[in-house]
Design a protein around this nucleic acid. Structure first.
Length: 501
RNA sequence: GGUCCGUUCGUCUAGGGGUUAGGACACGUCCCUUUCACGGAUGAAACACGGGUUCGAUUCCCGUACGGACUACCA
């Protein structure tokens, strides 16, 4: 039975890279008929940000990656919030000391900092620990006395030199670390909270996690994790590891960071986030007008591909096709243009009524009051020329309110006294033409144009400018039909008024 | 600096000992359309470098270069 977890830290908005990690875990769980767990790793009290937990859950909800168990979802292996499991880690930390795989250390952070200042590459390890303040040199009695006296202490992993630790990573294959190169990592902090390393192993074991799918930044500490599994005697049920390639900045070097959002003017978070300051506030994919399906599709392909020439996949298809073996090894650059094109594709593919439902709140926010039927029609004309949801009411505002401004250059080029007369006559004709339908209208106007001996190019563009103000936009007669007779005539008259007819 | 991971068109990637190295995004051209898009067609565009192994390497091995992550009582 496959059990995987997504274990974000509630230190702010959930990064889009985190969403991808959640996605891969979700896909794997669903495909294997397994369980997808949400665990909140809030063991750093100093970095805890209120609201971050809700944000994470809402973000997962929005993209449709619902956990089977976890914070906010319940389950038999809770609590799923690490700050609620403090005693469990303490018990295990002390147990590991008993087993001889860890020890108590009394060095203050200040003392260690000073040491790092003095020595270029100071590391707390098998070479240095005998010259430091810990239970290994102090002895059991003295250590106990200090702890009972309330002296602050941490628990450190006792890494023995001389071993080669092999990790069979499902993505990278055999990865080897020499234990002599490893430091004695802190497992339990002076505040009684565990570090990631301890909490992660204890929880994964207790929650019966079978596969750990996480970012590449964890690869270097995985050897420590293996040592922990061994130290607890849990190595027989140790999960399989898969370390995902990182998502890189759109341009320049390094991994994608939250600062890049503002820097490049692109969303790097699923949902908007309002922090304490403007600097700590970001627009999300949702608010930018992305469809969650498009975001999922885009993200899935950032570091993974099932093979073949297809690249548009529904969540169901992704579940079918997903395989850890097909995950790439190299970092994937975040390509916003690609994200946009997916959004465009998904908007095109969506049916008008469903799209109208999504556009309605945006329209209402602008004070537009229209029927479902009207909205669907407007959406059907606009959907092949928008990239984002808000484009419907921004670029396509003219479906909801009169033309705000006219493309003067295009207008001047075409408007003249002779044409004005023809235009006026056409307006009168259209005012009474039946039926007011695109096909019939177009036929009639073209016949009229021929009768008048003018060219279509002289009159059609003016019709368009009258209706939408610019030379861009949906087919004129389709637009006229949707706008309706009354509005159409009003706009033709408005243009004539403007041009002093 | 040390440890570990990586490297196919600009980008995301397919492929894999013998291929005209495929697709998508972006870009160019053309068609459709008396608009803008969509759509269709088409073009330019890649196996980092050097050694091996091999009849033959983009593919396997080793180096080099370059990139990345980690190197906290953060995750």
């Amino acid at each position: 039975m496959v059990r995987v977890r997504f274990a974000p830290s509630p230190t702010g908005a959930l990064h889009i890279g985190g969403v991808r990690t959640a996605l891969y875990n979700y896909l794997f769980a669903r495909q294997q008929g397994g369980t997808f767990i949400l665990r909140i790793e809030d063991t750093d009290q100093g970095r805890y940000v209120p609201g971050a937990e809700d944000y994470i859950i809402e973000a997962l909800r929005w993209v449709g990656l619902l956990p089977d168990e976890g914070v906010g979802f319940g389950g038999p292996d809770g609590p799923y919030r690490q700050s609620d499991r403090k005693e469990i880690y303490q018990k295990h930390a002390h147990e590991l000391v008993e087993r001889g795989h860890a020890y108590y250390a009394f060095d203050t952070p200040e003392a260690l900092d000073a040491r790092r200042q003095a020595e270029e590459h100071f590391t707390y390890n098998h070479l240095t620990r005998n010259g430091l303040s810990n239970s290994l040199v102090l002895g059991e009695t003295e250590s106990k006395r200090r702890i009972e006296a309330g002296e602050p202490f941490v628990v450190r992993l006792k890494v023995q030199p001389g071993r080669s630790i092999h990790i069979q990573d499902l993505i990278r294959g055999d990865v080897v670390f020499e234990s002599s190169e490893l430091d004695d990592k802190v497992l339990l902090k002076a505040d009684g909270m565990p570090t990631y390393h301890l909490a992660n192993i204890v929880d994964d074991h207790l929650m019966r996690i079978t596969h750990v799918i996480r970012g590449e930044e964890w690869l270097p500490s995985t050897a420590h994790h293996v040592l922990l599994y061994e130290g607890f005697g849990w190595d027989a049920t140790m999960p399989r590891f898969s370390h995902l390639p990182l998502i890189m900045k759109p341009v320049g070097n390094g991994k994608l960071s939250k600062r890049d959002g503002a820097k490049f003017g692109i969303p790097v978070f699923p949902l908007s986030w309002k922090g304490e300051t403007a600097e700590d506030s970001f627009e999300g994919f949702r608010e930018a007008g992305f469809l969650p399906e498009a975001v999922i599709n885009f993200l899935a392909l950032l570091g993974w591909h099932p093979g073949g020439d297809e690249d548009v996949f529904s969540l169901e298809q992704l579940i079918q096709l997903f395989s850890i073996e097909h995950i790439g090894k190299g970092g994937a650059r975040f390509d916003y243009e690609k994200a946009k094109s997916f959004n465009q594709k998904y908007i095109h593919a969506m049916d008008n009524e469903a799209l109208a439902k999504l556009v309605r709140p945006l329209a209402e926010a602008k004070g537009y009051q229209v029927s479902d039927e009207y909205l669907s029609k407007a959406v059907s004309l606009m959907k092949e020329r928008v990239t984002f949801l808000p484009d419907f009411v921004q670029t396509g505002y003219y479906f909801f309110e009169p033309v705000r401004e006219y493309d003067e250059e295009a207008l001047q080029k075409r408007w003249n006294g002779d044409i004005a007369l023809v235009f006026a006559e056409l307006t009168k004709k259209m005012a009474i033409f039946e039926p007011f339908k695109a096909v019939e209208l177009e036929e009639a106007v073209k016949v009229f144009i021929q009768e008048k001996g003018v060219k279509p190019g002289e009159i059609l563009p003016l019709l368009r400018i009258a209706l939408v103000g610019t030379m861009k936009g949906p087919a004129v007669f389709e637009t006229a039909e949707v706008l309706g007779r009354e509005e159409t005539i009003a706009r033709l008259n408005a243009l004539m008024l403007k041009c002093n007819v």
